[in-house]
């Protein structure tokens, strides 16, 4: 990893999000971040992205802005299916 390369730093920041950064790379990227404010900002923004994704996982209701849902016919069909569960048929 080239210590002056923002491209390498960006890859390393990504790897750190997945917990896959080797010790050596971690040292190099730390040095790079010390001298590169642009990559420091990039790292903060990637961490923000991670937080946003995690929030999305916790609140899947928000995933769809248009409140789509099952059609009435499907609901009735599923309802019947669940009600008749003890039937031998």
């Amino acid at each position: 990893m080239n210590i002056f390369s923002c491209k390498h730093a960006a890859t390393a920041i990504n790897e750190s999000l997945d917990g896959r950064l080797s010790l050596r790379k971690r040292m190099v990227v730390r040095l790079h971040l010390m001298m590169c404010s642009q990559c420091r900002r990039f790292k903060r923004q990637m961490l923000f992205l991670r937080r946003a994704t995690q929030k999305l996982t916790r609140l899947p209701e928000q995933e769809s802005q248009t409140q789509i849902g099952l059609s009435t016919e499907t609901k009735i069909r599923l309802q019947k299916m669940l009600q008749n569960r003890d039937d031998p048929s």
């Binding site: 899947p60 209701e61 995933e63 409140q67 789509i68 849902g69 099952l70 609901k75 309802q79 669940l82």
Partner: peptide
């Protein structure tokens, strides 16, 4: 209560 599933979670699961 399976009979409540469609009403309570149906749309949610569908959207998911």
């Amino acid at each position: 209560d399976p009979e409540q599933w469609v009403e309570e979670h149906g749309d949610f699961l569908f959207r998911f």
